[in-house]
Computed example of a mutant assay.
Amino acid sequence: MAMRRVWGYLAALAVMSSVLVLGPSSPACACSCAEPDPVKNAAWADLVFVGVVVDLDRPAFSMSSGDLMTARLTVERVDKGTAAGHVEVRTPVEGPSCGFDFVEGTRYLIYSRDGLTSMCAGNRVLGAAPEVELDSDVPVAALVAGAATVVVVAFALWWVLRRRGAPRPAVGPVENGPAGSGEDQDSA
């Protein structure tokens, strides 16, 4: 009885920890930027524009925070350089590598050099742009994480239900013959 309870607690712990590991997380930031200076940012950038993020392409399996994601933006205004239609800007995936956190459907002032930007470039959020149609596709990483969570929960549920239906070990010798014959299984 005590062992069954221990296994039940372990199964519950496994399910809860898988949800915590695979569930949503808040970004950590080890990036340190100087105070934003619009004049220096504009001098550094070869393209300064206002645009709306219409699609984000994140790597399905990121090996480091320095892996790059691509944001596709619809250009609304160009302040420096030349761009028309859509522009793709790359940035590190996560904050520890100073990656800029783009959100689809949001308007930004972007400072970019050679197609790259970062949290330290001086980019600014200008607000939501609900009037712009998004090009987004199915987020592969979210689907993989969701599927993995479902598999872990299903396995834990199967295991717990299987354990509950398992026959209990017999206490004492089991008799084979007719009631009261005194023969047990091992007398053969």
Results as ranks from 00 to 15, higher is better:
73 L>E: 00
69 M>D: 08
95 G>H: 12
35 E>D: 12
170 A>H: 12
167 P>H: 05
161 L>F: 11
55 D>Q: 15
183 E>T: 11
9 Y>N: 11
142 A>H: 13
172 G>Y: 01
129 A>F: 07
68 L>H: 02
128 A>L: 10
68 L>A: 07
1 M>A: 15
139 P>H: 05
188 A>G: 12
103 V>S: 13
11 A>Y: 09
51 G>R: 00
130 P>F: 11
59 P>F: 04
10 L>D: 10
63 M>Q: 10
137 D>G: 15
71 A>C: 05
169 P>L: 14
96 P>I: 00
106 T>G: 04
89 V>Y: 02
50 V>W: 01
44 W>S: 09
51 G>P: 06
19 V>G: 14
140 V>L: 14
103 V>E: 13
64 S>R: 10
174 V>T: 04
93 V>L: 12
110 I>Y: 10
89 V>S: 00
77 R>Y: 04
18 S>G: 03
182 G>W: 00
97 S>N: 11
7 W>C: 14
156 A>Q: 06
119 M>V: 03
107 R>H: 08
56 L>A: 07
41 N>F: 05
17 S>R: 09
46 D>K: 04
8 G>I: 00
85 G>T: 08
188 A>S: 09
174 V>E: 11
39 V>F: 05
143 L>N: 12
153 V>D: 05
103 V>C: 05
108 Y>F: 11
64 S>F: 03
172 G>S: 02
171 V>R: 11
154 A>T: 00
4 R>K: 14
133 E>K: 15
76 E>S: 13
111 Y>G: 08
177 G>D: 07
38 P>F: 03
184 D>V: 11
9 Y>A: 14
40 K>S: 14
19 V>A: 15
185 Q>E: 13
115 G>V: 09
57 D>L: 10
163 R>P: 00
94 E>M: 13
19 V>Q: 10
57 D>G: 08
151 V>C: 14
165 G>Y: 05
115 G>P: 04
40 K>D: 12
102 F>K: 00
47 L>Y: 06
19 V>K: 06
86 H>W: 02
139 P>L: 01
29 C>D: 15
83 A>V: 11
116 L>V: 08
83 A>I: 00
72 R>N: 01
88 E>Q: 07
138 V>N: 06
18 S>H: 07
32 S>H: 10
93 V>W: 01
132 V>H: 01
98 C>W: 08
140 V>H: 01
160 V>Q: 09
79 D>T: 09
167 P>E: 06
181 S>C: 03
72 R>P: 01
175 E>S: 03
170 A>T: 06
125 V>Y: 10
65 S>A: 10
104 E>S: 13
61 F>C: 09
2 A>D: 12
116 L>K: 14
53 V>Y: 04
73 L>G: 00
165 G>E: 13
66 G>V: 02
134 L>D: 04
13 L>N: 01
22 L>M: 04
149 T>F: 10
137 D>N: 11
95 G>T: 10
125 V>M: 11
30 A>W: 08
80 K>T: 05
155 F>Q: 06
69 M>A: 12
110 I>D: 02
172 G>K: 05
151 V>D: 04
44 W>H: 08
164 R>G: 09
77 R>M: 06
123 N>I: 07
123 N>R: 04
52 V>W: 07
6 V>D: 07
146 G>N: 13
120 C>S: 08
141 A>H: 08
82 T>I: 02
9 Y>W: 15
80 K>G: 02
161 L>H: 10
